[in-house]
Amino acid sequence: MEAENQTEVSVFLLRGLSDDPELQPLLFGMFLSMYLVTVLGNLLVILAVSSDSHLHTPMYFFLSNLSFVDICFISTTVPKMLVNIQECSKGISYLECLIQVYFFMIFAGMDDFLLTVMAYDRFVAICHPLHYTVIMNPRLCVLLVLGCWLTLFWVSLIHILLVRRLAFCTGTEIPHFFCELAQILQVACSDTRINNICLYVATALLCVFPLTGILFSYSQIVSSLMRMSSSEGKYKAFSTCGSHLSVVSLFYGTSLGVYLTSAVTHSSQRSSIASVMYTVVTPMLNPFIYSLRNKDVKGALQRFLSRATSWP
Rank of each mutant, 00 (worst) to 15 (best):
A202M: 07
E173K: 09
V201T: 10
V258K: 04
Q220G: 00
P175S: 13
C148S: 15
T172D: 05
F28G: 03
L250C: 13
F62H: 13
Y120K: 07
L14P: 03
S224A: 15
S272C: 07
A308G: 05
S230Q: 06
C88Y: 11
L152E: 02
I160D: 03
T38M: 08
F288K: 04
S64R: 14
N196V: 12
I194Y: 10
K236N: 14
D111K: 13
V124F: 03
L82A: 08
S239F: 05
V145L: 10
Q100A: 03
C72P: 00
R193T: 15
W154D: 01
I289L: 10
L26A: 14
L162Y: 09
T261C: 15
Q186S: 12
S18I: 10
N5F: 00
F107D: 01
N294W: 03
Q100G: 08
M105H: 06
P25S: 10
S230K: 06
C169T: 11
L211R: 07
A274Y: 06
E180W: 04
S230N: 05
Q6I: 00
H244F: 10
S262A: 15
L199G: 07
R164Q: 08
M81A: 09
S275N: 14
T212G: 12
A119T: 06
S217Y: 04
T133K: 12
S75I: 01
I74P: 06
F123P: 00
L225T: 10
S75C: 11
L301F: 01
E87H: 08
G233S: 10
F209L: 15
F103K: 00
K298Y: 12
I221V: 15
M226L: 14
T282I: 06
A237N: 05
I92M: 11
R164I: 00
G299D: 14
A204D: 11
K236I: 07
L157V: 01
L40R: 10
H56W: 13
L44A: 13
Y218G: 08
T116K: 01
C72N: 09
L47W: 09
L43Q: 09
V145N: 06
Y132S: 09
S223R: 10
S271E: 14
L43G: 15
Q6W: 00
V247P: 01
E87Y: 03
F103N: 03
Y200W: 12
L82S: 09
P312N: 13
I106G: 03
L44V: 14
S64N: 12
T265C: 13
Q86R: 08
V39Y: 06
R15M: 12
R270V: 12
L205W: 01
T133F: 00
I71E: 10
I106L: 14
H244R: 02
S93A: 05
T203M: 11
C198V: 03
Y132N: 02
R165G: 05
L152H: 13
H266C: 09
S231R: 12
T116G: 13
L245Y: 02
Y102P: 01
S230F: 02
Q186T: 11
T116C: 14
